[in-house]
């Protein structure tokens, strides 16, 4: 699917949600409704509103499951500790003979229900988000000591272009064949929000 198409689809979905109170079939996980404050299109967002929208995504389990504050990846909609006690390992790619790549490849495997994306791994310990507030996550994200020395531009690039991050919108199915829940904001809206927030000076609200 072309990017423009996806954006269009995302926009229609958003419109559907707002106008028709869109209800999804029962077999799929419910698409969470957007918070009231986002009842405007991304183009009109203030950097503060954009922050809210971005954080809807970054605090979602599709992101936080791989940003744990300890040495165990989380999995599933209930963010349980990864089965079999799988561990972070010295370089965030698992331990010697039980690497992430022992099971996870560069694409989802929908036969097995094993998710995959390029560089499938845990975020470094310094990028632990689990249990942090939105403000703490944002501060950590902008702190070069934590984010691997990234500039704001590089951080935006990571947040909006990195395939492992964008996997959240194509999370595939689990071992039972059930589609994984996607973040509550469509990808295009999220990308736009990140950019709007950054362009507006990346403000972090007082909370």
């Amino acid at each position: 699917m072309k990017k423009a198409h996806r954006a269009y689809l995302a926009f229609s979905l958003l419109l559907g949600l707002l106008v028709f109170g869109f209800s999804t079939p029962r077999s799929h996980p419910p698409e969470p409704k957007l918070p009231e404050r986002n009842k405007s299109t991304a183009a009109e967002l203030t950097p503060e509103q954009a922050f809210d929208l971005m954080m809807e995504v970054l605090t979602h389990k599709r992101c936080v499951n791989c940003h744990p504050s300890d040495d165990y990846p989380r999995q599933g909609e209930d963010s349980h500790i990864h089965n079999f006690g799988v561990q972070r390992g010295p370089d965030n790619h698992g331990v010697a003979a039980l690497q992430c790549q022992t099971c996870h490849q560069s694409e989802n495997n929908n036969h097995a229900g094993v998710p995959g994306a390029p560089e499938w791994s845990l975020a470094p310990r310094k990028m632990a988000w689990q249990g942090l507030t939105r403000v703490e996550i944002a501060r950590s994200m902008l702190n070069p000591d934590n984010n691997g020395g990234r500039t704001l531009e590089e951080t935006v690039h990571h947040l909006t272009e990195h395939e492992l991050v964008l996997w959240a919108w194509e999370p595939g199915v689990d071992a039972n064949g059930t589609p994984r829940e996607k973040p509550p904001v469509p990808k295009a809206e999220y990308i736009k929000a990140v950019k709007t927030w950054a362009a507006g000076g990346a403000p972090i609200p007082e909370e």
């Binding site: 022992t102 099971c103 490849q105 495997n109 097995a112």
Partner: peptide
Amino acid sequence: KAIRSCSYA
């Protein structure tokens, strides 16, 4: 490297 081949295309 150890690979679980049931889930490796």
